[in-house]
Every structure is written in structure tokens, then in C-alpha cells.
Nucleic acid binder design. Structure first.
Lengths: 338, 338
DNA sequence: CACTGGCACTCCTGGACGAGGAGTGCCAGA
DNA sequence: TCTGGCACTCCTCGTCCAGGAGTGCCAGTG
């Protein structure tokens, strides 16, 4: 495959992305000074089609890139175009105004949607990858506690705990001290082991309560590994003339399913800095016609993922740059708040 | 306006809602045993049209109800049809499994969307109408605190506070005691006054920190009157063949704007048990073709609103019943957790 | 006076048809 | 190896027409 053929592919991808219409040989020859005639371009196109990079919606139409074509474009042809200085400043300012973690996530997801004109998805910092900063016990009634857990990423989880016996204020202080001593600074992934031993460490008369507490903690931490995600920019699905072949229905439905969104953001074990999944490379059926660009974020290590979802015919260089930049800023902010 | 004319209107509304097609005189005469001929129905229809309750999309088409027609239907004709026992049980079970306020709201909004097949919106309990249950101060670094506020409705707000001076553990305890003494049990609406006097009550060396704390509290409580809302069921907008005349775009956009959603749920001062706003009765331009059914909820007094958004041609009796039932159950749950 | 059957009329819907146009593949020549 | 030319394909869009649903009106009836 010689250079000119690659240039032709690039031209097709770029033109198709911007015009959304099949691009013909004449247009390529004219608009991208390749120095050859349309007929020559046609020959190259025939080759590219044979090789599976582009296809014709029907005879006598121009060509559009295939998933394979986009893949080649992303891997070898697209130069990522960094955000402009003004954009970077805007991103920075907007995110730094966040007042708490919820706000960071909300702002991030909106920002991504706005920058990329696509649907944005941001996972809250995963509990599995966080550690305990502080546990707070608030006595509501003598037999009712509220447990508040704050993680190093700023997430706050709260649960009610019914206590088997009435507790005095001192009892509560005791328990608070106990759980904090045991869990503070510990990774949540390691917590179950520690929690299991909690009741053994409490004063005899507090054992029952400690184990109620332990049960709630286990439920919050272990059983509830469900991750929270925020979504924004669904309206962008209607850009570019309803990009999904069928109706919006299945897509909108999928966007409300946390499980699906988590799959979309990628297997938890993927630590790649930035992932682009094009068309069939997505494992979720509803998104076979879509491209997903995701990045991990976190202070130091990855604690969550964010990404955008759009048509395969997206502006790859711009989108990739935006996702990467936002992920970096968010990581910085989490770092500061640690 | 005699009874039969009202019956004709009811028939038109019911048939149009279920078939989504203009209904003709013949269909009405046949399917709703009125005991008169199609010609008679035609005369009544002419009257109803003259009076503004129904209209013709074009000559030689059947009739569809106008907003005014739906209004009459809701006010005088629709018998609310209560949920079935099975539905009620399902609602109850699903909601009672919620583990915290976030979960209650999330489950509620999904439930509403599912029951009504429409877009559901639920406001979190308004901070303005809540009172302080507990304030917690967590020392992160010697000059950095995390302030956690828990309200009687279960909402948890967290903010970082930079302290002007280094604080000892005792200082933190002191401050915690101070703010709790002053604010616990107080309505947030009354809080600003109390907060303003906080620093005066602190030990001299803690004054500066107390006023930093006071500032953050004021910002959280007063300046941030923005309310949180949850949305679900956007996919239902694509039911019934894209019910909004134009594209989905503006609707989807509006659904991501908190300000708009709050307007949609209605003026905060409306304490009506249940409100139905049909077509033009909505103040928001994008929703002039829609109907919004909202209800207040809360333990005792109203602390928030919830509702659904759908086409004017909705199943009013069913929707109204669902919204009312869910609002009641949620109120019960909040009552229990108080 | 209210209701009914009949009838002419309107106007939408969906399919057929054809002109116009964009783009291709292929071929012969430079 | 590239280029210009040319025949061919197939989509798009507008027009046209038949079919059908529903109406309004009118004259007749209990």
C-alpha cells in the first residue's frame, strides 16, 4: 500500500466526517492537492475497497470508510490536534470551580459532551480502587446510626444501621474510634478481610452492634460494587441527522443502564491511557455502529474511566484530544484534593 | 353542553390516546354504544369543534382533542384508575429496598418512567425545606477540613474548607460541637442568620476558622439553592412515533438543564397535591406540546416534587394514578427514615 | 325538534413513473 | 503508470393518479 493510497484514505475519512456524504473520486482529486487526476484516484479507491478500508453504499455512489478504514486512520494517519490555549483555559477554569466530587463529575461530563458534541459518560471513582479516608457514625436514635464513609477520592457513601441494642454516646465514640483505627487509609479492596474481624475487637457489650456495622460495611463495599456513572449530551445523538441507522430508542435505553455504561467504559482491568473502540470492536450490540473513546483518570493510578460515544464517522483527532485533556485535568484535581 | 356531547368528547380522547389517530364519527358511534348514528355524532363533533375542544388536522380527517379538550377531560371526565394490587406491591417492594436517599430517588425516577412509559423527573428533597440533622468535620490535613452536612431528609452535602490556621484535634472537636449546637434541628431556611453569628461564639483563636467554616456553610446553603434532579425514561420519548412535532433535540436538551427541569416541576410555592399542566399551560416553550403531571412529596410537608412528561395525548387516568401513588410511597419512606 | 341515511366533496396516502445527476468501471492512448 | 473519455448504474426527487377515509349538508321521518 503506497503513500498516495493512504492519502486517499485520509481524504475520504476527513471529507466524509465533515460532509457526512459519500465522497467521490472527483472531490478527492480536487480538494486534496494530490497532483493526480480523478481517474487515478478511482483506481486507488478500487484498491482500498478491495482491501476492505472503504465501501460503496451502492453502485454509483461515492465511498465511505469502513470500521477497518477508520481504524487505520486512527492508528496511522490521524494527527491528534491538541486543544487551543483558550479551550484549555476554559476547561481548567470550569473544572476548578467544582465544589465537591459530585460537582467535579457533573462538570466533567458536561464539558466532555460540549467539547466533543457527543454523548459523554463519566464513571465516579471506583470504590474498589479507593481507600478509606474517614468513617463517621452519627447517632440518629438510640437504636439507629448513620454510617458515613468518605474515600480518598472524595466519594461519600451513607447507610443506615439498626443497632441490636441501645447505644450511649460513649458507645458510639468507641465504635467510631474502632472502625477508624482499623480501616483508615486501607484500600477498600482489602477491607472485607479487616471488616470480618471487627466484632472481635469491640468490647463484649458492643459486639452485636459492631457486627451489624460490619454487615452494612460489607454490603456497601463488597456487594454493592455497582459503579455510579453520569451521562450528558444525549441530545447530541440527534445531531448529524440521527446517526444511528435504526431509531434512537435502543441507544437511549442503553444509556440508562449502568451495567451497559460500565461495559462501554471498558473492562476494569484495562489500564491503557486511551482506548478507541470502533464499530464492531464494541462488545455491546447496540453500539456496533458507534465509536467509543475512553480514558482512565485518577490521582496517580486509575480510579475510574470517562469517555464519549459517537458515530463511527466522528472527528477522531479532535475527540481524542478532548477526552485526553479532560481526563488529565480531572486527574490533577483529584490529586490536589487528596 | 349536554351529556352526550361530553360522552363524544370522552370517546374521542380515549380512542385518540389509544390509537394515536384522528377518530372519525363512525368509529365513535360504533365503539362507544351511544345509541345514536354516525351522523348525529358528526353534529356533536361540529359543536365540540366550534367550542374549541377538538380539531381537525385537515378537512376530511377525523378529530383530535385540543389542549382545552384534554383539560375538560381531566377535570370532569377522567376517572382516575388506581394501580392494581400487584402494581402497588411491586412499587412498595422496589422502593423499600433503597439503601439511602440517592437510591430512593434513583429508584423512584425509574419506577415512574416504567409505570407511565414516559419521561420521569424527580427532585431531590429541597435543601430550603430541610433542616440540619448533623454536621461533621473531618480533618484531612492540619489546614484542611471536610465539612459534611446531613439533613433530616437524608441528603448529604460535603465541602472542603481551607482553614486559616493549623488546627489541633481538640480544635476540630470544639468546632464540631459549636456548629452542631447551633444548627442541629434548625431549618436550613433559618440557617443564614445563625451562621452569621457563628464566629462570635467561637474561642478567640478559632474565630478565623469559624468564619471560614461559616462562609462555606453559607455558600452551600444559601448561594447553592440549585436543586438536584434525576431524570429517567428519555427513551420513552421515542415511543408513539416521536411524539413531538419537531425533532427530539430541544426536548433532550431541556432535560439536561436543571433550571428547566425545576421550572417544569413547578413553582416551589405550589403546594397542590397534584398538578396537571397540558400543552400551553406549560410555561416552557419547548414543552408546549407536552403534558406534565407533577406531585409534591415529603414527610408531612412537601420537600420536593416529582412528575412525568409526556405527549398531551397521554393516558391521563393511568398517569395521574401512578404519579400520585409513587409520591405517596416515597413520602412514607422519608417519614420512616426521619 | 332531534335524529338519520344518503351523497357529493375534500384531501391525504401510497405507489408508479420518469427525468436528472452523481459517480463508477473500463479502455485506449500518452 | 497515469489520464481523458464514455457508457452504464442506480439513487433522488418531483409529478401524477387511484383509492379511501371522513366530512358537511340536506331532505326525510318519528
Amino acid at each position: 500500500m503506497d503513500d498516495r493510497k493512504l492519502e486517499v484514505l485520509r481524504a475520504i475519512v476527513e471529507d466524509y466526517v465533515s460532509t457526512q456524504e459519500p465522497v467521490g473520486s472527483k472531490a478527492v482529486a480536487q480538494r486534496h492537492s494530490l497532483g493526480v487526476s480523478a481517474a487515478t484516484v478511482r483506481n486507488d479507491m478500487a484498491y482500498l475497497e478491495e482491501a476492505g478500508y472503504i465501501q460503496q453504499p451502492h453502485t454509483s455512489a461515492g465511498r465511505i470508510p469502513t470500521a477497518k478504514g477508520y481504524r487505520l486512520f486512527v492508528d496511522r494517519l490521524g494527527k491528534i490536534k491538541p486543544l487551543s490555549a483558550a479551550e484549555r483555559r476554559a476547561v481548567h477554569r470550569f473544572l476548578s470551580e467544582a465544589i465537591d466530587l459530585d460537582d467535579v463529575v457533573t462538570r466533567t461530563v458536561r464539558l466532555l459532551a460540549q467539547l466533543t458534541h457527543q454523548v459523554a459518560v463519566v464513571q465516579y471513582p471506583s470504590l474498589n480502587r479507593s481507600s478509606v479516608r474517614h468513617l463517621e457514625l452519627v447517632s440518629l436514635t438510640p437504636t439507629r446510626l448513620m454510617l458515613v464513609m468518605i474515600t480518598d477520592t472524595g466519594r461519600v457513601e451513607q447507610r443506615y444501621v439498626e443497632t441490636p441494642a441501645e447505644l450511649t454516646e460513649d458507645d458510639v465514640l468507641d465504635l467510631r474510634r474502632l472502625v477508624n483505627e482499623q480501616l483508615q487509609g486501607k484500600a477498600l479492596a482489602d477491607a472485607p478481610r479487616i471488616i470480618a474481624g471487627l466484632d472481635g475487637l469491640a468490647r463484649p457489650e458492643l459486639r452485636a452492634t459492631a457486627s451489624a456495622l460490619a454487615r452494612v460495611l460489607l454490603e456497601s463495599v463488597v456487594a454493592r460494587t455497582e459503579e455510579r456513572v453520569a451521562v450528558a449530551g444525549a441530545a447530541n445523538l440527534t445531531r448529524n441527522g440521527n446517526f444511528f441507522a435504526g431509531s434512537l430508542r435502543p441507544i437511549l435505553e442503553a444509556l440508562e443502564e449502568e451495567v451497559v455504561l460500565m461495559q462501554l467504559l471498558g473492562r476494569a482491568d484495562s489500564n491503557a491511557l486511551l482506548t478507541v473502540r470502533i464499530g464492531d470492536e464494541n462488545e455491546i450490540d447496540d453500539f456496533r455502529e458507534a465509536t467509543v473513546v475512553t480514558a482512565g483518570y485518577g490521582p496517580g493510578s486509575v480510579v475510574g474511566h470517562m469517555g464519549v460515544l459517537g458515530p463511527t464517522r466522528m472527528d477522531y483527532p479532535g475527540t481524542i484530544a478532548a477526552v485526553r485533556a479532560v481526563a488529565r485535568y480531572v486527574s490533577e484535581i483529584l490529586e490536589q484534593n487528596r
